[in-house]
Every structure is written in structure tokens, then in C-alpha cells.
Design a binder for these strands. Sequence first.
DNA 1: TGCAAATATGCAATCGATTTCTAATATATT
DNA 2: AATATATTAGAAATCGATTGCATATTTGCA
Lengths: 343, 343
Amino acid sequence: MKKGSDNTMKDIALELGLSSSTVSRALQDHPHISQETKIKVNEAANRLGYSYNAVAASLRNSKSNTIGLIIPRISRYYQSTVITAIQNKLHEHKYNLMICQSNESHELEKELVNALYASRVEGLIVSSTLNTTDFAHFDVFSRSNRPLVFFDRVPKNYPAHKIQGDDYHGANMATNHLLTQGCRNVAFIGGPLFCNLYRERYEGYADALKGYELSPGPNRTFFHDLTKESALQSCEALFSGKRDTWPDAVFCCNDTVALAVTTYAKNRGVEIPAQLKITGYSNDPLTEIIKPTITSVEQYPSEVGTQAAGMIMNLIQQKLKPGKNYISVTIAVDLVKRDSTDK
Amino acid sequence: MKKGSDNTMKDIALELGLSSSTVSRALQDHPHISQETKIKVNEAANRLGYSYNAVAASLRNSKSNTIGLIIPRISRYYQSTVITAIQNKLHEHKYNLMICQSNESHELEKELVNALYASRVEGLIVSSTLNTTDFAHFDVFSRSNRPLVFFDRVPKNYPAHKIQGDDYHGANMATNHLLTQGCRNVAFIGGPLFCNLYRERYEGYADALKGYELSPGPNRTFFHDLTKESALQSCEALFSGKRDTWPDAVFCCNDTVALAVTTYAKNRGVEIPAQLKITGYSNDPLTEIIKPTITSVEQYPSEVGTQAAGMIMNLIQQKLKPGKNYISVTIAVDLVKRDSTDK
DNA sequence: TGCAAATATGCAATCGATTTCTAATATATT
DNA sequence: AATATATTAGAAATCGATTGCATATTTGCA
């Protein structure tokens, strides 16, 4: 073997007195090659420690067998579960996954789109940054006809395929559940409304209230990043006045916030669920750990990932020919009732 | 633009009446090209929607700017935090990361090593499968002089660079803490001893006992996969006999097990920490959520990831020239004392 | 025997960026 | 004026696998 480099098909050919065409075809089990030759080639390949060069094949075939993924953060339950599902699905099709984190930075997201395009990934799966409202940087993919699938954080007005949870229904179910349990003063803590996720959930929440001839009261709705810190600030606002102004329920748009609210209430001596009922979103395992256990909305992240990867593969293999149309798949959600809402 | 394909440097050259050599150099800001030409080339590149083809460059330069990662599962707190750190570090160096999950399957791990090698990743970061004892399938990397760094699950007798937590010390600290708190009947639940992680932790545990002239009692040590289900079985074994045969502490090798034991004990009416003290491992956020909060060992996963990625980059850039030697970095751990051990 | 069809293999171009070597100007130096 | 030295640009080979087309050999069948 030449120093520092690998044996190639040419080396096998040389060794056997064949042409590299024959070697290539033999390794692909091409019908025009005799059994005898195939055996000799495979044997020589093993003997020489030959390793297929996917980069060269990728260039020649314009086929990288790689899919790109851009996601704000991978270290959250929902996200990492989606990734696992994508990964496993793609592996069935012998595709690799190149994962990039945008760290919620719009600029970084742009950069990553271009880097992945330069790597000639055959398709791109994206959950965009919270503050991505301009999606023009994804145009490279649409222009060159490479499948582009958004999930979770999906654009409203940008033409692309989408996999979404049924956010409206999830929030609507959760809020209705709170109302059924007798709550009439239900607060809402969510992300910014320009993000589809939270807008849908807000509407599901508001419509549920409407069903009871209620509407979101003053100082009852909060829109900010869904961290513990921000959640605690909203709690301060909610529970600052006299006791009779306090809410009797809080619908939280993720489980981190639900957890923070639960902890805050407990510290404040507010009894859950008797005086305050709480629902979260995502059904993070933590909701079952804390006392009281927290009612939450199951989003079936594995299903989301499997669908996203499956759709990308179908688009690549042209089993799916949407033409100028865009497909939008809504994944059903379920409300998992637990102690925080008295079941 | 030709249908379905991208403009290349050749297209820019054609457009401007230059050669593709000049275009290549202009885009690289090569000193032998005039400012005027550079400006024209860049302008034309933008106009034509030119996109750099990293695959072609990769083939020509034998440089993929990609690192591979093989890991049993990505959807756990420790793992996903490590990945985030690796990812961010590599991005600083303009490297991409190709992530693969072995799903704890040794066969799949083999397959993934070859697939990543075929993609000509410049280095490989690995946390191996629990049942990987033969590491020969990683030879392709060592043979071709491509950096190979293991972390967490690290081989004992295989020559490679390693990033490990100080498992011995972590377990030793935790056990000593339990002993200091007065426990004299400390059980151990860990993974199989042929895995470095658990062997080290077991030794740290056993040596701590020795310091108190104790040794692991009969039916006090358990070695199995660290799931909730297995943990509950071990609990049954621990608490099957009469009350005076019960342990007064359990050292658990991960937080999932610690959680399971805590839940089991609570259901059984065993008071924590009064009658039973529990320690976990990894300092998963869940340890702070449950009541009582669980004492655990912080492994600084971000540091592990940063070190692993940093080492790979140094090896690639030859800032680190270990020659025939192998580097082993031990990441310090800390004991985080919480309610489950009465602090 | 003769011609068609089947079987097995090789030649050479291709994918797109890079780089060595060569060559053509232009400017500087004595 | 003549030679030396920058400066700028191009031609062509290269990386390794693939494949359309051409070619050579064998078998089949009338």
C-alpha cells in the first residue's frame, strides 16, 4: 500500500491483471462479470485491505448518500428522540446523517445550510431557529430540487414539506381538560407567537376558553423563551397580586416551564392540583418523576422522526412526486393526564 | 444553469473568459491573482448562484473535513451533552460531524466503522457498545493513521487515545461519603465488569469499603444493564429477606437506576435518607427534580466532548504528535451531595 | 459451416476542484 | 538597451469510482 493512502480498485486491477472497470463491476456484482472473476476480485480486495471510497463515488454519481439535519439543540428529550428515529430510519436506506446545531442562531443556521449544501447532502431536515422568520437561505435546496423537510418549528409561508405535531389540538385538549376540571382562570405560558408552534397552541388554548365563554384575561398570557428563569419571572407576575387574582391553572408550552411553575407553586405553598392545576407539553420523562406528576401532551417524537426521514427518502427515490405541491403531515398528539390536574 | 445540477468553477470561467485554475485561485484569495480578477470572479459566482462542491475538493485533497462519531445512543443526557460539545468544538475548526448510533449492537458498530471509513472521515470518536470486547474492527483507522479517540466506554487493551471520567475516584468519593454518613452495608449496582467504566467504579467502591475494613457482602453487588427494569429486580433481591438484612445504602452506576431504587424504596415505605441512602452517577438533571433529590457524580460531559474534539483536531493538524504513544486524558469528576444521602 | 446471440472484459471519458509547471506580460535594475 | 524579476494566467494531470461503447470470445442453432 502506498504510504498514508488506501488501495483503490486500480490496485486490485493491477494485482490481478484486470481493468478497473471489471473490478468495479465485480464488486457491484454486475451480471456481465463471471463468477470466477468476482471471486478473485473479492478475494484480492480482502487481501489488499481494500476500502471503498464513497467520496469518489459521490462525485461521479452526484449521490452522497447523506442527509443533513439542522436543529437548534440536540440535547433535549424531544429533539434527541426525533434524531434517534431519523438516524435509524435513514440507516435502513444506507444513508448517513450529518447533524448540525444552530444553537438558536439565525446566522449560524444560514452558514450551516450552505455548508451542508456544499457537502452535497441529498436532502435537508430542519427545525428552525426560534427567530428565523426569513427562510430565503433555504432556497439553495428548493432551487436545486433537493428535498427539504421541516419539522416541529416549521415556516408558515415558505414552500416546503412539513411534519408537525397537532399543536392546536394538543393545546385545545389540555385546556379543555383544565376547564372540565373546573378551572376558569387559566394562564398561558408559551413562546413567541410568530413561531408556528406557539401560535397554534395559543389558538387551541384561546378557542377552548371561548367554548366556555371565557377569554384570555389580562396578565394571563406570557410569550418568551421557555426556560426555567423566564418561567419564574412569569410566576412572579401571576402570583404578585392578592390571592383572589391568582390563576387556578397554567397551561405551559413545554415541560421545563411546567416543572418551574410546579416548583414555584410548591415553594409558595400553593397546593397542586387543589388550588392550581398545571399542564406541560412534550411528555418529557421528567413529568413522571416529579411529585405531583405532571399532565402533559405526548408528541410522539419517534413518529415525527420516522415520518421526516421516510418522507425525505420517498422524495429522493421519487416514490413521492409532489410536483409543485407541498406535503404537510400532522402527527396526532395525546393528552397524558397525571396528578397535576387531578387526572 | 444546467437542469438539476449546479454551476461549477468551469461555468464561471466560461462566463468570464478565464480558466478554471484562475477561478479556483481567485475564490481562494490566492496572491497570484489580481484584485480586479478576484472581484469579477466573486461577482460572477454570486450572479450564477455558484456553490462550492466540497465532495470534489474532498476527493482531490484527500480531506473531507468531517469527523465520525459512533455512540450507543444519543438520547440520554450525558451522551447528548457530549455530542453538543463535540459539535460546537468541531464547528470552530470548520469540521462537520457524522453521527451514528450503534444501538448497543456490536455488529452494527462494525458496519458503521466501515461506512464512516468509506466516507473518508478524517478521524473517529467512539463510545463503544457495552458488549464490544474485540476492537479489531477499528484497525482500519489505526492502520491508515487516522486519529481514533475513545471516550466514556473505552477499551482496556486496544491501542488508542482515550478520554475518560475518573470513574475510580467518582465511585470512591461517593462510597466514602456513604460510609462517612454512617452506612456500613452499602450495595452496588453497576454494569458488567468487563466494561472499563463499571470495573473502575466497582474498584473505587470496593476500595472505599476496604478503608473501613469492610468488603462487598454476599448478595450486595449486581452487574447488569442499567435500566429501570433490571434495577427493580435487584431491589427485589436486596429487600427480599428480613428487615435486618436490608442494605443501608446503594451506590448506583447511573441515575436511571438511582431513580428506580428511590422509587422502589419509597413505595416499600423505606425512608430516604434515614433508613436508606442512595447515590447515582452522571448528575442527570432528574436528580434535582425528584424528592428526595439524589446525590450524584458530576462527569462534566461538556468537558469530555470538548476534549475529545480538541484532541482529534490536534491530532489531525499534527499539533499533537504522539508517535507510537497513546494519550489518555482523565476528566475530573465531582460528588454533588443532595438529600438522598442527608448531604 | 456460417451467422446470430450471449458472455466477458477493456478503453476512455466523466464528476469538479486543485496544483504543478509553464508562459506571457509588465516593471525594475544596471 | 538588455537582462532580471515580479505579476498574472493557463494547460493539463490528479483524486477514485463509474459506465457507455467497443471489442473479443464462446455458445447456439439452422
